[in-house]
């Protein structure tokens, strides 16, 4: 026979479970390693999540194509013209790169060679509205570790956090706990780019120098002061800059150059082998 506790005792039981959960929550906020059960589930659920993500991406793409078919022909013509222009520009940029490489060598700059890019598919995202992370289909077996940079078609995406055998969680740059060192492409001022939340889709920009000169439309790129990201990768574009009192800098927000809401594939940056000196 099952003995049911009285209502008052049940409330105490609920309260005890609540307190226990709260304690567990505080202990598991920011973790570099997932538990064995989480890793097991993540690896086993990865194929299902990959399938669902592919279905979602396929449906949205085709649905949008169907809705926009009238514009497609016109866009195609425009893009052809643009490709021709870009090809011309590309040739010019190659020439600049060659010249830049020669100058770097001449000035004794350390070459940023040795970075390997591993392509990965985005198979899931954080199911909530506040924290911003994605799950990719590469893990320990592919050589991933915690703290590797991840980039997308437009630039910085985020960095790896918890890594299971076959999957890894990537904290996006707009996650509230993310912070990346950046530099204004226009002025060279150093800044810190901090995430806000998934729903905001923006990041807050804090200058690291006094009297920073930041303007709306400025491009922020990686500073290269850490080994996670090579120097010069686009992070985002400033969308709002609010001046403070007496002309000092108050607040700025950045929109990522990569569309983080529509990521399908990303590249994980494998840093060069440690050679004893700090990057």
């Amino acid at each position: 026979m099952v003995v049911r506790p009285p209502e008052g005792h049940r409330l105490i039981l609920y309260a005890a479970v609540f307190l226990l959960l709260t304690a567990v929550l505080n202990l598991t906020a920011e973790r570099e390693h997932v538990t064995a059960l989480e890793a097991f589930l993540a690896d086993r659920l990865a194929p299902i999540q990959r399938g669902l993500a592919t279905i979602g991406a396929w449906t949205v793409k085709n649905w949008q194509a169907l809705l926009e078919w009238r514009e497609l022909k016109e866009t195609n013509e425009k893009l052809r013209t643009q490709v021709e222009l870009l090809q011309t520009e590309n040739i010019r940029l190659r020439e600049y790169r060659r010249e830049n490489a020669w100058l770097r060598e001449a000035l004794g700059f350390r070459q940023e060679l040795g970075y390997t890019m591993l392509p990965a598919q985005v198979i899931a995202r954080d199911p909530g509205n506040w924290l911003s992370s994605i799950i990719i289909d590469l893990g320990e077996e592919d050589g991933l570790t915690t703290g590797m940079g991840v980039v997308g078609p437009g630039g910085v995406v985020g960095s790896t956090r918890s890594v299971a055998k076959k999957t890894a969680r990537v904290m996006l740059m707009i996650d509230p706990s993310s912070a990346i060192g950046g530099v204004s492409q226009r002025t060279g001022d150093l800044v810190l780019v901090e995430g806000l939340s998934e729903s905001a889709g923006l990041a807050r920009v804090k200058p690291l120098v006094r009297d920073a000169d930041l303007k709306q439309g400025d491009i922020i790129v990686t500073s290269g002061l850490s080994v996670i990201f090579p120097k010069g990768l686009p992070i985002g574009r400033l969308v709002t800059v609010t001046p403070g009192d007496y002309g000092t800098f108050a607040e700025a927000f950045l929109e990522p150059t990569t569309d983080l809401a529509r990521l399908e594939y990303v590249f994980v940056i494998v840093p060069p082998e440690e050679d004893g000196d700090d990057g």
Binding site: Y14, F18, L21, T22, V24, L25, L27, T28, A29, E30, R31, V34, T35, L37, E38, L41, A42, L45, A124, D126, P127, G128, L131, S133, I135, R161, S162, R169
Partner: peptide, 22 residues
């Protein structure tokens, strides 16, 4: 399940969802 998929605060979704059901 959401907590495992999220990989962050273990028990946060459990706490929220069970509170709602309660």
């Amino acid at each position: 399940l959401l907590d495992f998929l999220s990989g962050r605060y273990l028990g946060l979704h459990v706490l929220g969802k069970t509170a709602v059901a309660f």
